[in-house]
Computed example of a mutant assay.
Amino acid sequence: MRPDEFLRALDLLPASLHDRALALRAYVKPRRCETCQAVADAVRVALTAVHYDELGSAAQLLDTAEQLATRHHHACRPEHQPGRGQVRRWAETSAPLIAATDASWKGRAGGIGYVASDGRYGLRSRRPGRVDPTGFSRVLVSELRAVEFLFTAYDTPPVGMTVLVDSLPALGYLHRWQGGETGAMPAGYDLRPRHAGMKPTLVRLAELVARRPDLTFTHVKAHAHHALNEAADSLAHMARRRVEEPFDVRARAHDLVEAFLRDWHVALPV
C-alpha cells in the first residue's frame, strides 16, 4: 500500500479508529520481518473492512495489529527499495529540510532524481513503451514525476519542506496545484486510471500538493553550482544513462550524494 493510499483510507475511519490506525503507519511499508508484515496485513485488511462498513471487524483487526506491534516494540527498517538510498550521516540533521529534484531526457531514454538534505536520495530510469501516457510534454511531466518520487520517499512529506526545482514550467504547475487548480495538467497527459485503477502520478501529486500549503516550491537556476540541484541533476543523468548502458549505480549514486551533501552542509551558516 502506497503512503498516499494509506492516508486516503484513513479518511474513511471514524475517530475511534483513525488514530489507532495512524499509529501503525510505520508498519505498512514492505519489510522482511514476519511480525512487521503480520501487523501490516492486519492494518490493510482493517482498512478494507471499513470500506465495506464492517467497523466491528476493523476494530478487531486493529486490536490484533496493536497486540503484535506491542510485543514487537517497534517497526523494523523497510526492505531496500530499488533506486532509493540514504546517507545516514545526515539523517538526524536539525537544519530545515530542503530537497532538489530533476529530470533528464535524451532520445527515448529518461531519468529522474532527487536528493534531500537529510541524506535521502533516489533515481529512476524510464523508457517509454508503445503506449506512453506522458503526452507531448515529456520533459515537463518527468520534472513533476521527480517531485512525486521525492515525496513518496516519506510516509508523508515533512512539514515545512522546501523543494528546489530548476524547471519554471514545472514550478508553475506546482504553484497552481497548491492554489487549488488540481485539474490543470500538461498537454496530452493521459488521465485514465493506471494499473489496478490507481490514479495517474501527476493527479496524485496535484491532490497532495493542494492539501499541503506548508510545502514550499522554489526555483533554482540549473547548472549554477548549487550542491543539491547538481546532485539531483547528476542522479537523473545517471538514471537516463543506465537505460542504454546497464551498470550498477548504487555505489556511484551513494558516493555522489555523499560528496554533494558534504559540500551543502559545510556551507550552511553555523
Rank of each mutant, 00 (worst) to 15 (best):
E79C: 15
P78H: 12
V243Y: 00
N229S: 14
G56S: 08
E245I: 07
H51I: 04
L228N: 00
P169V: 02
Q81L: 11
S167M: 13
P157Y: 01
H254Y: 10
G183S: 07
D118F: 05
D248A: 11
R25L: 13
V203S: 09
S125T: 04
F260K: 13
N229C: 10
T182D: 06
D255E: 13
P133S: 12
A103K: 09
E244K: 06
E230C: 02
F217Y: 09
T152V: 10
T156M: 08
G188E: 05
C36H: 03
G135Q: 10
H73F: 14
P269C: 07
D63Y: 09
G197H: 03
L61C: 06
A267R: 11
G110T: 00
M1H: 08
S117C: 10
G179T: 04
Y27C: 09
C33M: 05
V28R: 12
P78Q: 01
D102S: 09
Y173P: 01
S137M: 14
Y52W: 13
A109P: 08
Y52H: 15
F260D: 03
E54R: 14
L150M: 09
V163N: 07
D248W: 04
L174G: 00
R130M: 13
R194E: 12
H225Q: 14
A103N: 08
V159I: 11
T70G: 02
K106P: 02
G129M: 13
L144W: 03
H80N: 12
M1P: 03
W90K: 10
V87L: 00
K221N: 01
Q178R: 15
P246H: 12
E143C: 07
E34S: 10
P3I: 00
P14I: 06
D255Y: 02
D263F: 01
R211F: 00
R262I: 00
G183C: 04
V45W: 09
D155I: 10
A58R: 01
V209L: 06
R192G: 15
R8G: 06
E143V: 08
H219D: 06
G83M: 03
A259F: 04
D166C: 03
D263K: 11
L24F: 04
H195K: 09
A75M: 07
L140Y: 05
I112P: 07
G119N: 03
R211W: 02
